[in-house]
């Protein structure tokens, strides 16, 4: 996967709570191969006139700032594919659906969790200054606004390193193959009904 280290990009405000993965990519596109161009399916049914990503001020946005519980609902990893293929490499929100956040970390999409009041302020300022950029530094765990205001964020250490390295988790796990086999042998005796 493409590593994520730092990103300086236009940030688009989407001041909506509970943006579910059905909205991010509707079900009818899930039968398409990735090569079909998932960027064309992003927010397909909710892109009304004036939708933030279609406005020239936010052209080429690489960061999305949204309301709480972003990516809730269906486990479809295609929601991450659609965002990444459309050039979004970072989503900032007060909280994320757990499955979405896990999927994001495996596809080079950084999810930044900041307090609701902080995100609220960001949303206001981004709406007031269309096309404003944010600078994201994953090793330093900071988001910096155009005026220099710095917001520190927390992230799971394993997910952070995986994003920085562009790591394939399966390789990490297969290094533990003997431990897995030993666990399976013990478990076979303990729970023969499995």
């Amino acid at each position: 996967m493409t590593p994520f280290v730092t990103l300086d990009a236009v940030a688009a405000p989407l001041p909506v709570a509970n943006v579910d993965t059905d909205q991010i990519i509707p079900a009818r596109f899930l039968r398409k191969p990735r090569s079909a161009g998932y960027r064309n399916f992003l927010f397909a049914d909710v892109r009304k006139a004036g939708f933030v990503l279609d406005r020239p001020e936010w052209a080429g946005a690489g960061i999305l700032v949204a309301g709480p519980n972003f990516g809730c609902g269906s486990s479809r990893e295609a929601a991450v594919y659609a965002l990444v293929d459309a050039g979004i490499r970072c989503v900032v929100a007060p909280s994320f659906g757990d499955i979405f956040a896990g999927n994001a970390g495996k596809n080079g999409l950084l999810t930044v969790t900041l307090p609701e009041a902080t995100v609220g302020g960001l949303l206001d300022r981004l709406a007031a200054a269309p096309g404003a950029r944010l600078a994201v530094d994953l090793p330093a765990q900071t988001v910096t606004e155009a005026d220099g205001t710095v917001h520190a964020f927390g992230i799971d250490a394993f997910r952070k390193q995986g994003l920085i390295d562009g790591r394939d988790d399966v390789d990490v796990t297969l290094a533990h193959a003997a431990t897995i086999a030993a666990w399976e042998a013990t478990d076979r005796d303990a729970r023969p009904w499995v």
């Binding site: 999927n103 495996k106 796990t173």
Partner: peptide, 23 residues
């Protein structure tokens, strides 16, 4: 029982395990 995305499905197919942080 919990839902997972495609990358995790491929991880389970290959290893019958998953990396998880205790919820």
């Amino acid at each position: 029982g919990f839902g997972i995305g495609a990358s995790e499905v491929s991880h389970v197919l290959a290893t019958q395990t998953l990396w998880q942080r205790r919820p």
